[in-house]
C-alpha cells in the first residue's frame, strides 16, 4: 500500500467531515448551540494560544501526567521484579493485587481529593493507581518469560544476581514493559484529566468541565482538540524511546537473517 496515498485519503476524509460539520451548522441543519462548528473551535484554540491562557492549564496537566506516569511505572516495575523473583511474596500478594486492580478507579477520585486536596497530588494519585498495575503486570509477565536456557548460560558465564537483573531479566522484560508504556501514558492522562474534571482549579480537564458548566460547546470541543493533540505528541515521544530501546528486535520481515 502506497503511504502517500493513505495520507492523502486520511486528509481527504478529515476535510470531508469538517466541511460537512461546518456547513450543516451554517445551513441551519443542526443547532450551533449544541454542536458549535469547526471554524469557531479553531478560532477558540487559536485565541487560547495567542493570549497564552491555555499554557498554564497544559503545564498543570502535563506535570500531573508525567508525575503519575513516572511514579506508577517505577513502582510497578519494582513490585513486578520483586514478585517475579520471589515466589513466596507473589503467592501471598496475588489475591490482594487482583482485588485492588478490580476497583474502578473513577470511584477512588473523590477519596483521593479528600486525602490529597484539590491540587496536583490527588490527580497524580489517580493516575498512579491506573499506571501502576499496567507496569506491574507487564513487568511480572516479562520476567517470568525469560528463557531458562539464556538464564543458565548467563549463570555459567559467571553472572552474579545483580548482573542477571541488569543484563538478562530487565532487557528481556523491556519489550513487555515498553508495550505497557504506550497504554500507561494514555492512562496517566486519563488520571490527570478525570481528576481535574471532578474537582480542580486548573488543567485541561478543569477547562472542559468549566465550559460544560456554562454550555460553552465551542470551548468544550476546543479543550478536546488540545487534549487530543497533547496525547498524540506524548505518544510519539514514547514510540521514539521504544524504537531506540528495541533496536535488537527483528522486524517481522527480517526474521531469520542470512545464511
Amino acid at each position: 500500500m502506497d503511504k502517500r496515498k493513505v495520507i492523502l485519503l486520511q486528509i481527504l476524509l478529515l476535510a470531508l467531515v469538517l466541511l460537512g460539520w461546518e456547513f450543516s451548522v451554517r445551513l441551519g441543519w443542526v443547532d450551533a448551540f449544541f454542536f458549535s462548528k469547526p471554524s469557531d473551535i479553531a478560532a477558540r484554540v487559536y485565541e487560547w494560544f495567542r493570549t497564552g491562557e491555555v499554557y498554564r492549564h497544559l503545564w498543570i496537566t502535563l506535570t500531573e501526567t508525567v508525575l503519575a506516569f513516572l511514579s506508577g511505572t517505577i513502582a510497578g516495575i519494582a513490585l513486578g521484579l520483586w514478585l517475579a523473583l520471589s515466589p513466596t511474596a507473589s503467592a501471598v500478594l496475588d489475591p490482594f493485587l487482583k482485588a485492588l486492580n478490580s476497583v474502578p478507579r473513577v470511584i477512588l477520585a473523590p477519596i483521593f481529593t479528600l486525602w490529597f486536596g484539590l491540587g496536583i497530588a490527588s490527580k497524580v494519585a489517580l493516575g498512579f493507581s491506573l499506571v501502576f498495575f499496567i507496569a506491574f503486570f507487564n513487568t511480572y509477565q516479562g520476567i517470568r518469560e525469560v528463557s531458562p536456557v539464556i538464564l543458565a548460560n548467563a549463570r555459567m558465564l559467571g553472572a552474579a544476581k545483580g548482573q542477571l537483573l541488569r543484563h538478562v531479566y530487565l532487557p528481556s522484560a523491556t519489550s513487555w514493559i515498553l508495550s505497557s508504556l504506550r497504554s500507561s501514558v494514555g492512562f496517566a492522562v486519563i488520571g490527570a484529566v478525570v481528576g481535574e474534571y471532578l474537582g480542580a482549579s486548573a488543567g485541561l480537564g478543569y477547562v472542559i468541565s468549566q465550559a460544560e458548566g456554562v454550555f460553552d460547546t465551542t470551548s468544550v470541543f476546543a479543550g478536546i482538540v488540545v487534549l487530543a493533540a497533547f496525547v498524540v505528541i506524548l505518544d510519539i515521544g514514547v514510540s521514539l524511546i521504544e524504537k531506540r530501546l528495541l533496536v535488537w528486535r527483528p522486524t517481522p520481515d527480517q526474521e531469520g537473517g542470512t545464511v
Binding site: 548460560n153 548467563a154 555459567m156 559467571g158 543484563h167 535488537w248
Partner: peptide, 28 residues
C-alpha cells in the same frame, strides 16, 4: 566454575551484539 557450557539451544542474549555477547563472561 572450571567448565564452559555450549548449550543445545540458542543461548545468546538477543539484545546484545555479537561483540557484546562474546565479551559477556568478561563483563560479568
Amino acid at each position: 566454575r572450571r567448565a564452559g557450557y555450549l548449550f543445545q539451544q540458542d543461548a545468546l542474549l538477543p539484545w546484545k551484539t555479537a561483540l557484546e555477547n562474546a565479551a559477556l563472561g568478561l563483563t560479568f
